[in-house]
Amino acid sequence: MTVLMVALGAAVGAPLRYFVDRFVQARHDSVFPWGTHVVNATSCLLLGFAGALALPPWATALAGTGFLGALSTYSTFGYETFRLLENRETFLACANVLASLGAGLGAAVIGAACGRALLG
């Protein structure tokens, strides 16, 4: 049952990641990976929120591991940072690392705070 929940969530999260990434990146005339940054920060926000709600195991597998795991993308973040370094965009590569870590951690904290506030 858990594997099915993860697969169902991922089946929605992975295509959504692709479409959001392309939508955001198409609106920026920059080599900075804005699309990946947006999907990763959004995933952290939602995972922090979901974690605070103490969902049942099946819902955690569906939403947390499946959907949000597929929506976020550490491998793309790593690859895009590496490509920036290869292209001698050192400032943008460092900015990507710092901004992604800061936004991800900050979003997770905000999401968890919102989840706790919702529970009262």
Rank of each mutant, 00 (worst) to 15 (best):
T2S: 11
T2Q: 14
L4F: 13
L4V: 12
L8Y: 02
G9F: 05
A11L: 11
A11Q: 07
G13A: 04
A14W: 08
A14S: 15
A14F: 10
P15N: 11
P15C: 12
P15W: 12
R17P: 03
Y18Q: 11
Y18L: 13
V20A: 07
V24P: 07
Q25T: 14
Q25I: 02
A26L: 10
H28N: 13
S30L: 11
W34D: 10
H37M: 15
V38A: 12
A41Q: 05
T42N: 09
T42I: 09
S43A: 15
S43P: 06
S43N: 10
S43L: 06
C44H: 06
L45I: 08
L46Q: 05
F49S: 00
G51A: 09
G51D: 02
G51C: 02
G51I: 00
A52H: 03
A52T: 01
L53S: 07
L53D: 02
A54V: 07
P56Y: 09
P57M: 03
W58F: 10
W58G: 05
W58K: 11
W58V: 02
T60M: 08
G64Q: 03
G66H: 05
G69F: 06
S72T: 09
T73P: 05
S75Y: 10
T76P: 04
G78D: 06
Y79C: 01
E80G: 04
T81S: 12
F82Q: 13
R83W: 06
R83L: 13
L84G: 04
L84D: 01
L85N: 08
R88K: 15
E89H: 15
E89V: 00
T90W: 14
T90G: 13
F91C: 07
A95L: 14
A95K: 06
N96C: 08
V97W: 02
L98M: 13
S100K: 03
G104M: 00
G106D: 07
A107V: 02
A107H: 01
V109F: 13
G111L: 00
A112C: 07
A112Y: 09
A113P: 01
C114S: 13
G115S: 06
R116Q: 09
L118K: 08
L118F: 12
L118G: 14
